[in-house]
Write a protein that binds this DNA or RNA. Structure first.
Lengths: 161, 161
DNA sequence: CTGATATCAGGTGAACTGAAATCA
DNA sequence: CTGATTTCAGTTAACCTGATATCA
């Protein structure tokens, strides 16, 4: 899990050239790492990681997904996602069942316990998102969302299919 | 390193409820993973990872940083960042030197080799960013940048200090 | 003495590659 | 036969915690 929550303040030094703006890639990375740190902290009592929570919430919204589909929407290999799903299964948060129509597929579904975890932690996760966009107006939030969705599409990923 | 570049297309099934919009946290995670996959692919010939390239580029812009400062701007622990820096040092991309003024600090600097790697790969990395925002107008790109910078600040991270 | 930096030691989750089995 | 899904086996990078030494 994570702690990291380092108190950004303290010492000085290290240049401050500001001149050229940071790249978007860098800022996105910083935000992602900060979110990971905060999410792991929130989810610690649940015994799951940020990555696992994210997978759970995708499965909640999109019924009938397989591990391979989940892997595509996350730009990771099928093997990586299989590991993650196995961990969730071992924690009794999801189940796999063979698809009768296409016997290669193992369809995923949440267990009652998986659903309880989501219900319990969603409020705090939503608060974190609210904190993140707290300094933006409603219009700016809309622009941000549209911008991010456009980036996602341009990078050739999208919602689970 | 990564491959992942899975051809999002193929099979169907898995719901398509679209109804409720995805959370920003989720979309940012998707973008981050897609970028990581693409960056690792770009950087493979250099023998460095996306994370390592990012650290290098931060060190280029901000002279006189220590590993601890770098850790704060990345929301990771000092130990994690020390590992990363050691890898960069072993690859002869950065050097550490004791700060005479404050003998606890080990200031980082790029080697000539580190600089060469940045010069060589920056064009392709910039292309990736351009591809990501390719569907947005100039105005929308500005809004996106401002939105992301605001998120970063609200999450209590910022440019290296 | 407190707080910051760095390092040592040990651990885990989350990725990867390669190979193989099953099935459409 | 080709292609998709899954699984097995082994590896690595990137995080973490805890403890310790140095120094401002």
């Amino acid at each position: 899990m994570t702690h990291a929550r380092t108190a950004r303040s303290t010492s000085a030094q290290g240049s401050a050239d500001e001149s050229e703006p940071p790249t978007l890639l860098y800022v996105i990375k910083q935000i992602d790492l900060a979110l990971r740190s905060r999410l792991d902290e929130i989810l610690r009592p649940a015994g799951i990681t940020a990555t696992q929570y994210t997978a759970l919430s995708v499965l909640e919204r999109h019924v009938g997904l397989t591990s391979a589909q989940l892997a595509r929407t996350s730009s990771v290999t099928a093997q990586s996602m299989a590991d993650l799903v196995t961990a969730l299964q071992d924690a009794a948060l999801v189940k796999r069942h063979r698809d009768a129509a296409d016997r290669r597929r193992l369809v995923l579904s949440l267990t009652a316990k998986g659903r309880r975890v989501l219900v319990k932690y969603r409020p705090k996760v939503d608060e974190l998102e609210a904190e993140m966009v707290g300094a933006l107006s409603d219009r700016q939030r809309g622009e941000l969302r549209r911008g991010l969705l456009s980036c996602r599409t341009s990078l050739d990923v999208g919602p689970p299919v």
